[in-house]
Write a protein that binds this DNA or RNA. Structure first.
Lengths: 148, 148
DNA sequence: AAACTACTTGCAACTGAATTGCATTAATCG
DNA sequence: CGATTAATGCAATTCAGTTGCAAGTAGTTT
């Protein structure tokens, strides 16, 4: 995708299109998996990005709705661009940005985002002994195609 | 429960029954919710427990199978004794210690442990586009009875 | 195109959870 | 009751993430 394309995304979300943000947005947009602060940082070996700027950029992406964050097994935040979910056969990308499952590979520890498919919905479950359930989060553990 | 009772649990799991461990085990056993290091620490205002000892005790409980840990929304570890899960109507306590769901109250941020009930099982979901699924974790978000 | 201004960046210093090393102390077993 | 092995307590350290502030820059105004 062109720089123009990413610039527009940033501006549409109320963020100034700075060089640093464009580079981070492009990197995340092209990644198949959610990435941590340090992983992102390592991708900019040559032209170092300040760690605070990176933290603030990632938080800005999350706050404006460009990205979402998910904690990995080490409880560090991983960041992923919305609407990049892997689409299994016959599944339309969910309209609801927050409705997606996360797949954590036990071998490589990478996290992949999935839309919530029919099998993952348990509609009956609205109330459990007085606990009112609004939404649920699914974390799938297993082996990703790369590690099999 | 008596000190004898807790001492036995510790020894059965290969841990020496020290005063500190007994107090922590008793506290956790009587708690309806999973507790963080700092919450536990705060419960021992008078007779302070060393923070490192507390960390090591909690890890020992997890490693020997007395307790399990779950990350809260702030990504701090919360600890809970196994087999204290809330039992909804007609549910038998799960035999599999690791099969339980967590309910996170959006109001008070407390985490309650539940056994996995039938509605939460999606057996069909074993493979998703080449991602082999071994197990899944469910985090339910809503309002607990206390906060309603 | 220069000036403006509000947002963004970079640096240093800080916070808070959790860990490590090591000397001291206590629980268990013979 | 000792001996042995594990547990404790303290200081120092690590690491992710945050805060405050001065300097820089994008997007807008004139």
């Amino acid at each position: 995708m062109s720089e123009q394309f990413y610039s527009e995304i940033l501006r549409e979300h109320g963020l100034k299109a700075t060089v640093t943000r464009l580079r981070i947005l492009e990197l995340l947009s092209e990644s198949k998996v959610a990435m941590s602060h340090s992983e992102i940082s390592d991708c900019f070996d040559n032209e170092k990005i300040d760690k605070v700027t990176l933290y603030r950029t990632l938080n800005a992406f999350v706050e404006c709705g460009i990205a979402h964050k998910v904690a990995n097994e080490d409880r560090n935040w991983l960041y992923a661009i919305f609407d990049k979910d892997i689409k299994p056969n016959g599944t339309e990308g969910s309209e609801h940005k927050h409705e997606h499952a996360h797949f954590i590979c036990s071998a490589c520890d990478k996290i992949y985002c999935f839309p919530v498919v029919e099998e993952m919905k348990f509609n009956k479950l609205k109330d459990l002994m007085g606990f009112k359930i609004d939404q649920h989060e699914i974390r799938l553990h297993g082996t990703c195609p790369v590690c099999q």
